[in-house]
Nucleic acid binder design. Structure first.
Length: 271
DNA sequence: CAACGGACCTGCCTGC
DNA sequence: TGCAGGCAGGTCCGTT
């Protein structure tokens, strides 16, 4: 579910509701996520104040006065702020209650997400220290992608989804960005020239920015911090639209599998 | 290194 | 109606 725009939407939604709050109680209903939730989470967090919420790649970093909570939403997770004491639903695994009365609740049916604590700089955490540049922070451009792609024999779509190359691009926005750039998703990454990579870098930035502006993409269960959906699904050009006409040339949108993931493209507009 | 498949989970949809 | 199979927004890990 969450790619960069959904995680960023979550961050922006939580920001005014959570920053400055102090944890009064921690409830863990199901401790088994991708990695076990720290057994002493309550002892680690009660009494701490959340001073900032940052995002690195698809990770949310809830910075405390000392240390940080590292959250990943996996495929099916979302964070919402609810009234403390409200009845949990199925798959509501963690509650962080605040002294002010509200409660930050993690919901994640598939449990591919993560909820970890680090006392050190979270950017040095093993999960975060090998990530590529942020696509919306100026560290990623066409020349960078071109350089990183040299010698890569695989398809360009898995290449831009490689979080060690550039972060935040998941399965939806990879198809969308390649469509916008006119590049076929199966084209060999190492054989694409600098000019086309410049176009691709621009397309990635535009698609992610527009998706953030729309509040992300809700296909099934993604929800904002207040429970509302994101509306970028309405602007998707090819993702999930197999066999319907290409919005540019009206040829049916094609579907193929790349790197084990469904991939949508127009065989006429993308070369 | 790079590439690939399997693994981790639940829910939902399709087709028999 | 029931059940099997396939698929879903991620990414780590082991094997080639």
């Amino acid at each position: 579910m969450p790619e960069l725009p959904e995680v960023e939407t979550t961050r922006r939604g939580l920001l005014p509701l959570v920053v400055g709050r102090t944890v009064s109680r921690v409830l863990v209903r199901v401790p088994r996520l991708r990695w076990p939730i720290p057994a002493d989470l309550s002892a680690l967090l009660v009494g701490r104040t959340i001073v900032a919420i940052e995002r690195r790649a698809k990770y949310l970093l809830l910075q405390c006065d000392t240390g940080a909570i590292i959250v990943h939403l996996g495929m099916s997770g979302h964070l919402r702020l609810v009234v403390a004491g409200s009845r949990p639903e199925k798959h509501d695994h963690i509650d962080l209650e605040f002294t002010e009365g509200n409660c930050l609740r993690l919901h994640d049916p598939r449990r591919f997400g993560a909820f970890l604590w680090t006392a050190a700089d979270p950017l040095h955490h093993p999960l975060l220290c090998n990530l590529g540049p942020e696509p919306l922070a100026g560290g990623m451009d066409g020349d960078y992608l071109h350089r990183r792609s040299r010698g890569r024999r695989g398809a360009v779509k898995p290449f831009i989804m490689d979080q060690g190359v550039v972060v935040g691009v998941g399965n939806i926005y990879a198809s969308e960005a390649l469509f916008r750039a006119g590049i076929h998703p199966a084209r060999e990454a190492g054989k694409i020239g600098p000019k086309r990579y410049r176009r691709l870098a621009r397309a990635i930035e535009e698609v992610l920015e527009e998706a953030i502006a729309a509040g992300g993409t809700t296909l099934r269960d993604f929800a904002h911090a207040d429970g509302k959906p994101g509306y970028f699904a309405l602007q998707l050009q090819v993702y999930g639209r197999g066999a319907s006409p290409c919005p540019v040339c009206e040829q049916p949108v094609g579907v193929m599998r790349l790197g084990g993931r469904s991939t949508f493209f127009c065989g006429r507009c993308q070369k």
